[in-house]
Design a protein around this nucleic acid. Structure first.
Length: 410
RNA sequence: CUGGGUAUGGCGCAGUUGGUAGCGCGCAGCGUUCGGGACGCUGAGGCCGUCGGUUCAAGUCCGAUUACCCAGACCA
């Protein structure tokens, strides 16, 4: 990408009204734009990061036989009325809107009802099970207060997976597979060393659910854990009964703040029963489908990654998530020619900062944007037939021959 | 929702006892610069969140309202 061709700009400062580090840096670096409280636009760079995150999630879910779909953001109230979740006292985060022709619609806060309802058409026999369907979808939640930048927003991108199994046993099997897939996902997202499976409230669904919590100073949750972190539980379930269940003592636990980056639930018959999602079993008798749901807040994960890796100079992206891998800065005509040639040959991985600016500003922007490798090609480096590559994370520089660079950038 | 705060060019801010708005960044032009956010000159850009009131006169005072921020509560 030629930096001179994009409409995106970086900013030296952002208003004091934006205090969350993730949003401040993402706005300054030109990844996102704030539209209003808890509502953000993803600009070209930010969108590429989102897509990179989605690709990782998609690959891991496809490995465990999940199928991708895309449901609608507009919601028919009917299935929600059947489960009792249309009423605002049951779900206080609804955005509801009126149809011109009369009647109401909801803006999807989640998709258990519509997908369960839809599956009645496709799941009729035990032979149709299991079904694992997921989507990346915009969710709307009318939070009383949006905060923490892109960690808690009113409109956000979520990956939600729903499992439909013939019985509890096969569900549990898949639940374990999904857990493993989640751990692989966090690993690939660069959060593996600080993200743990965590016991949490099952809400109205079941005794427990499991969250995936990333230990992080700005996290909104408080979690308790033992020394080897084999047991991690959310503060909300820290009580004698749960401690006994898990076989740990209160005194053995330490606490920390954490950000929830995923949540998986065993739904049992919570939705399939009221919505009548049943199959004929081998004996030809009706059986209600056993369900589970599995969520990852894609945009929130992006914010968590920013919080984890950013330093005093700006964003720092793990290589597999970065919007571009290389940031080219050329000084002098020869360098400019080479930079243009390299960028032209690999537009998807290279930012060529061809703006008419002084080098200092380009260095600062390269760091602010968090591109993994900064390549400087100048008269100085070219005099020895070389270019300088600087690692964003470590700050270390090394010189490479132009021929080697040409190969690496190809 | 409770408490506190903010709202002035694209961004960040100032604006005294009420007298018709200013600074930095950015932007446009010219020139000098060119490996760590350069400099000089010139210039464009604002119904001061919105509605109403007080006054000869309101960015400034009063009332209302909306949005935004922080803390808390809330949070599949």
């Amino acid at each position: 990408m030629k930096l001179s061709k994009t409409f995106v700009k970086t900013f030296r400062e952002v208003g004091k009204e934006e205090t969350a580090r993730n949003a401040e840096l993402l706005i300054r670096a030109g990844y996102i734009n704030k539209e209003m409280a808890g509502v953000y636009t993803y600009l070209p760079l930010g969108l590429k990061v989102i897509e990179n995150i989605k690709t990782i999630i998609r690959e891991e879910l496809n490995k465990i036989d999940c199928e991708e779909i895309q449901m609608t953001a507009l919601q028919n109230p009917e299935p929600w009325q059947k489960t009792g979740r249309w009423e605002s006292d049951k779900m206080d985060i609804w955005f509801k809107t009126d149809l011109s022709a009369g009647g109401q619609l909801g803006l999807a806060p989640t998709h258990e009802e519509p997908i369960t309802n839809m599956m009645k058409k496709y799941i009729n026999s035990y032979k149709d099970l299991p079904v694992y369907a997921y989507q990346f979808q915009t969710k709307f939640r009318n939070e009383l207060r949006a905060k923490s930048g892109i960690l808690r927003t009113r409109e956000f991108l979520m990956k939600d997976l729903y499992s439909f199994s013939p019985d509890e046993e096969s569900h549990n099997e898949f639940y374990e597979k999904a857990t493993d897939a989640y751990l692989r996902i966090y690993d690939r997202l660069g959060l593996g060393d600080c993200t743990y499976k965590c016991f949490a409230s099952g809400g109205v669904f079941s005794k427990y659910s499991h969250e995936f919590q990333t230990f992080l100073p700005v996290g909104e949750d408080t979690v308790y854990y033992n020394k080897d972190r084999s047991v991690v539980l959310n503060e909300e379930v820290l009580n004698d009964e749960v401690l006994a269940d898990l076989g740990v003592k209160r005194e053995e636990l330490e606490s920390t703040t954490a950000a929830e980056v995923g949540n998986i639930f065993t739904l049992r018959y919570k939705f399939s029963e009221p919505l009548g999602l049943e199959v004929n079993n081998k004996e030809g008798k009706r059986e209600t489908v056993f369900m589970g749901c599995y969520g990852i807040g894609v945009s929130r994960v992006m914010g968590v990654i920013v919080e984890k890796y950013a330093d005093d100079k700006g964003l720092v992206w793990p290589e597999n998530l970065a919007p571009y891998k290389y940031y080219l800065i050329s000084i002098g005509e020869e360098g400019e020619k080479l930079a243009a040639e390299f960028e032209n040959g690999n537009k998807d991985n290279i930012i060529n900062d061809d703006r008419d600016m002084r080098p200092g500003q380009k260095f600062a922007d390269a760091e602010l944007m968090g591109i993994p490798y900064r390549v400087v090609i100048s008269d100085k480096t070219l005099s020895s037939g070389e270019a300088e590559i600087t690692d964003r994370k470590t700050g270390e520089s090394k010189m490479v021959k132009i021929e080697e660079l040409r190969k690496e950038l190809a």
